[in-house]
Amino acid sequence: MKVIFLKDVKGKGKKGEIKNVADGYARNFLFKQGLAIEATPANLKELE
C-alpha cells in the first residue's frame, strides 16, 4: 500500500515521502498513530 508519511518514522520514511509499505503495517500502526495517510489521488493532490 502506498502511504504519505506525515512524520519521520525511523527506518521507514521521512515526512512528505511517498512509499510502499505492508498493508497491515500501514493500517495497524502508521494510520492509528497518525504517522501516515493513504496515498489516494485526493491526498496526493493536497500534498502538492
Rank of each mutant, 00 (worst) to 15 (best):
L44I: 13
A39P: 02
N43K: 10
A36L: 02
K15G: 03
I18Y: 03
A39K: 01
L30K: 00
T40G: 04
K19N: 04
P41S: 10
F31E: 07
V21Q: 02
V9M: 04
G34K: 09
V21H: 01
E48K: 13
N20M: 15
A42P: 07
G11F: 06
K7V: 14
K32E: 14
N28G: 10
Q33Y: 15
A42Y: 06
M1L: 14
K10G: 07
A42L: 08
G16R: 02
K12M: 15
K10A: 14
G24Y: 14
E46R: 14
G13F: 14
D8H: 06
A26N: 04
K7L: 09
F5P: 00
D23P: 15
R27Y: 13
G24H: 13
N28R: 10
A39E: 03
A42T: 12
E38K: 08
K32P: 15
K19W: 07
G34W: 05
D8F: 05
A26G: 05
N43P: 04
I37D: 02
A22F: 09
A26R: 02
N20S: 14
G13W: 12
N43W: 06
K15D: 01
N43R: 11
G24L: 10
F29S: 07
L35K: 03
A36V: 07
D8Q: 04
Y25P: 06
E17M: 06
R27A: 08
G13Y: 12
M1T: 13
K12Q: 14
E48G: 13
A42Q: 14
T40L: 06
A36N: 01
K45V: 10
N20D: 13
I37W: 05
V3E: 00
K12V: 15
A39D: 02
N20A: 11
K7R: 12
D23N: 10
K12W: 15
N28K: 10
T40K: 06
Y25R: 06
Y25E: 08
A36D: 00
E46L: 15
A22V: 10
K32N: 08
K19A: 11
E46F: 14
N43S: 09
D8N: 09
A22S: 15
G13A: 12
K7Q: 13
K10M: 11
L44W: 06
K32V: 15
G11L: 04
P41M: 10
L35G: 02
G11Y: 07
R27E: 11
G16Y: 08
E38Y: 04
D23L: 13
I4G: 00
K14N: 08
E17G: 02
D23K: 13
D23G: 12
A36R: 00
K45P: 05
Y25I: 07
F31M: 07
N20Q: 13
Q33L: 15
K14Y: 11
L44A: 06
F5Q: 00
K12A: 15
K10L: 13
I37T: 07
N28M: 10
G13E: 02
A22G: 10
F5Y: 05
L30Q: 01
V3L: 03
D23I: 15
Q33W: 15
I37R: 06
Q33M: 14
K15N: 04
M1N: 04
A26D: 09
E48T: 14
I37A: 07
P41Q: 10
T40R: 04
L6S: 02
E48I: 14
T40Q: 04
K32A: 15
A22K: 11
E38Q: 09
K45M: 12
F5H: 01
L35W: 09
A26Y: 13
K19D: 02
F5W: 03
G16M: 04
K32S: 11
A36I: 05
I37Y: 05
K15E: 07
F29E: 14
L47Q: 09
K12R: 13
K2D: 10
F5S: 00
N20I: 15
N28Q: 10
G16Q: 02
V21L: 05
L35V: 05
K14D: 07
I37V: 13
E48P: 09
Q33G: 06
K32W: 08
L6E: 01
E17R: 02
K2A: 11
F5T: 00
G11N: 09
V21P: 00
E38R: 08
P41H: 11
L44V: 11
E48D: 11
E38D: 04
K7P: 00
G24I: 12
K15Q: 09
E17S: 05
G34E: 07
F29N: 09
A36E: 00
F5M: 04
K10F: 10
A22M: 11
K7F: 12
L44G: 04
D23H: 13
K2N: 11
Y25K: 06
K7I: 11
K12I: 15
K15M: 10
K10Q: 13
G16H: 07
A39I: 05
Y25Q: 06
K2M: 15
V3N: 00
I4M: 07
L47V: 10
M1H: 07
L35P: 00
K10I: 13
I18R: 02
N20G: 07
R27V: 13
G11K: 05
R27W: 12
D8K: 03
A22Y: 11
Q33D: 07
G11M: 04
Q33S: 09
P41T: 09
K12H: 15
F5V: 00
I18Q: 05
G34F: 07
L35S: 03
K15Y: 07
I37G: 01
K7T: 11
L47N: 07
V3P: 00
E46H: 13
N20T: 15
G13V: 05
N20E: 15
K2L: 15
E17L: 03
L6I: 10
K15A: 13
A36M: 01
G13L: 02
K10D: 12
K19P: 01
K10V: 13
K2P: 08
A42S: 11
N43L: 12
G13Q: 03
D23V: 14
F29Q: 10
N43Q: 08
F29V: 15
G24F: 10
L6K: 02
A39G: 04
L30N: 00
K14A: 08
L6N: 01
K45G: 09
I4R: 03
P41G: 08
R27P: 05
V3T: 01
V21F: 04
K10S: 10
A22T: 13
K19M: 10
D8E: 08
A39L: 08
N20P: 07
E38A: 11
G34L: 07
K15H: 06
G16K: 02
A26Q: 06
G24A: 14
K7M: 11
A22H: 11
F29W: 12
L6G: 01
Q33P: 01
I4W: 02
E48R: 14
A22R: 12
K15P: 05
K45E: 12
E17P: 00
P41D: 13
G11T: 05
K32R: 10
F31W: 02
N28I: 07
E38I: 08
K12T: 12
G11A: 05
G13T: 02
M1G: 03
Y25L: 08
E48S: 13
K14W: 08
L30W: 03
N28E: 15
E46Y: 13
M1K: 06
I18S: 03
G16P: 01
M1V: 14
L6F: 03
L47D: 05
L44E: 05
E38G: 03
G24P: 11
V3K: 00
A26M: 08
F5I: 01
F31D: 04
G34D: 06
I4E: 02
E46A: 14
D23W: 12
Y25H: 07
F31Y: 05
E48W: 10
K15T: 08
N28A: 09
D23R: 13
F31S: 03
G24R: 12
R27K: 13
A36W: 01
D8R: 04
D8W: 04
G16D: 05
Q33H: 15
I18L: 07
A26T: 09
F29P: 04
D23E: 15
R27Q: 10
L47S: 08
G16A: 03
A26S: 05
L35N: 02
F5R: 01
F29T: 11
L47E: 06
L35H: 04
V9D: 01
I18M: 07
E38V: 07
I4H: 01
T40S: 09
K15W: 03
A26E: 11
K2W: 15
K14M: 12
K7A: 13
V3A: 01
A36S: 01
F29M: 09
K10N: 10
A42V: 09
I4Y: 08
G34R: 07
K15F: 06
L44Y: 06
G11H: 06
V21D: 01
E17N: 04
L35T: 03
A39W: 13
K14L: 13
T40I: 06
E46N: 14
A42R: 11
L30M: 03
D8T: 10
D8M: 03
G16V: 01
P41Y: 09
I18F: 04
D8P: 04
G16F: 09
G13S: 03
E17W: 04
P41A: 12
V3G: 00
I4N: 00
L30V: 00
I37M: 10
F29G: 05
V9Q: 02
E17A: 05
A39F: 13
A42K: 11
V9A: 03
D23A: 14
L30D: 02
L6H: 01
L6T: 07
E46T: 12
K7G: 05
K15S: 06
K2H: 09
R27M: 12
K19I: 10
V9I: 08
I37L: 09
A26I: 10
I18A: 03
Y25G: 05
K2Q: 11
P41L: 12
A42N: 12
I37S: 04
N28D: 15
F29R: 06
L47K: 07
K14F: 11
G34Q: 07
A26H: 04
K2Y: 14
G11V: 01
N20L: 15
K7S: 10
